[in-house]
Design a protein around this nucleic acid. Structure first.
Length: 418
RNA sequence: GUGGUUGUGGCGCAGUUGGUUAGCGCGUCUGGUUGUGGCCCAGAAGGUCGCCGGUUCAAGUCCGGUCUACCACCCCA
């Protein structure tokens, strides 16, 4: 049993559950299409440098969570830990660098060598979008509104949207100095992680969850005041547009996010049903460096965690997605009847009907049980005597009534009645 | 990666201070109805008690290790 379990942090998704997954994919594709987004499928592995340069060598993800290996040609490849870098790599093959706009979404597995826990897998799945090639506050707002609409369409109500601005790269140098000056004065009272962050990545202090650090962070002066006027008005425009679009949001200067490529707008979505520490979606505006490109490429996008969305749907007791129901179940006694049933099933299936039938030699009772479990409204019964008389019995499984149908008209009868 | 909890047929569980053939419910299969499902009844199949080692006359029960899963942290979707 243990020997046949999937590797740590991975899971088999069985049919009963996979219907929910498909529902989310289909919903996403439909909503995103209404905003002009088309699907882009990229490889699940890329050259390692795509992520190293794209995400920034300092990020935790790049430093210790990537599944990196060497292929037979000695190339260093990495299983994608997120979707944006690969999408951007693919889009460099378009004229996006010349200012054309690309709107794409993607869906698929991502890989991170983390310790599994609630809502965290080593292979997990994201549905994400990227709007690439343009930089405008209204695009950011549209993107966030699209996420909002997707969640509603996916049956997820009551999500909390938190937004913030990271300014532009030039804003961050003075802001970092500003923060460093403040936190250095209080660092003795802060947690060991924050002592580290003071040197390594001062922004991460802002989302520290340790008790002892809270009052100090809360009282920190607003670094956003030190941002350029341009950054501040960009952010103001995003907020105004979201308000007009009726997307409820709150602003938190403590939202910084972990990937280095973000600029301007960043956002995260959580849901009270599963707790604030698990983000169901996150994203923002970015400038991404890619191998072979001199200039960073601008874009805005987000990713949602499928497993996490399902956790929320579960917690909300969202109505189950109806599976593909069986239209008709064929019951056959004897080799000749079974073969005829297989042929009939083939015809019905080509006509788009869902048909269940037992092809092994099993007892009548067993086949009736099977028909019952299949939830098919109709059962077609053929045994030796029916074969001889060239008829079939069609049984209504709900009330138990049954009628005889001549074999010649059976297919038409079924096509009309199921 | 660090910490806590965990592990018994497909699923959910019981198993008393170590004691002899490891049980129960659900599910599956077969039969009760030589060809009529759901309800009921009877029977059957299915387990090296996660794995390795140790203590003991004796280990599912105790000890050590290991792996897995769950949860928290780091971080992120």
């Amino acid at each position: 049993m243990a020997a046949f379990a999937p590797p740590p942090g991975t899971a088999d998704i069985f049919p009963a559950e996979a219907g929910e997954w498909r529902f989310l994919e289909n919903t996403a594709a439909k909503v995103f299409a209404s905003y002009g987004y088309g699907e882009l499928r990229t490889p699940v592995f890329e050259y390692t440098e795509v992520f190293q340069r794209g995400l920034g060598g300092e990020t935790e993800v790049v430093q210790k969570e990537m599944y990196t290996f060497e292929d037979r040609g000695g190339r260093s490849l990495t299983l994608r830990p997120e979707g944006t870098a690969g999408v951007m790599r693919a889009l460099t093959n378009t004229d996006v660098a010349n200012g054309s706009e690309q709107r794409v979404f993607y869906y698929g597995p991502m890989f991170r060598g983390e310790r599994p826990s609630a809502g965290r897998r080593r292979q997990f799945h994201q549905i994400g979008v990227e709007n690439v090639g343009r930089c405008a506050a209204l695009i950011d707002a549209e993107c966030i509104a699209m996420l909002h609409n997707f969640l509603l369409a996916a049956g997820i109500t009551g999500a909390t949207f938190t937004i913030n601005t990271r300014g532009v790269a030039a804003d961050r140098v003075p802001a970092e100095a500003f923060l460093r000056e403040y936190f250095s004065k209080h660092i003795d009272a802060m947690c060991p992680d924050c002592k580290n962050r003071l040197e390594r990545n001062i922004w991460r202090i802002l989302d520290c969850k340790q008790e002892c650090c809270q009052p100090i962070i809360d009282n920190a002066p607003s670094y956003i005041d030190s941002f350029s006027d341009e950054s501040k008005s960009y952010f103001a425009e995003v907020k105004a547009a979201l308000t007009r679009l009726n997307v409820p949001f709150k602003v938190s200067s403590r939202l910084v996010r972990g990937l280095d490529y973000y600029v301007h707008t960043v956002f995260e979505v959580t849901h009270p049903a599963i707790g604030e520490q698990i983000a169901i979606a996150g994203g923002g505006r970015y400038e991404l460096f890619l191998p072979g490109e001199k200039k960073p490429i601008p874009g805005v996008g987000f990713a949602t965690g499928v497993e996490r969305l399902l956790m929320v749907r579960d917690a909300l007791q969202a109505p189950a997605v109806s599976g593909d129901r069986c239209d008709c179940c064929l019951i056959g006694l004897g080799a000749a009847a079974r073969l005829e049933n297989l042929v009939l099933a083939d015809t019905l299936r080509k006509a788009g009907k869902n048909v269940a039938l037992e092809l092994e030699d099993r007892s009548f009772k067993a086949q009736m049980r099977f028909a019952n479990r299949s939830l098919a409204p109709l059962a077609v019964i053929r045994g030796e005597s029916e074969m001889e008389k060239q008829i079939a019995i069609v049984k209504n499984m709900a009330d138990g009534s049954q009628i005889e149908i001549p074999e010649a008209g059976l297919t038409d009868y079924l096509l009309e009645n199921i």
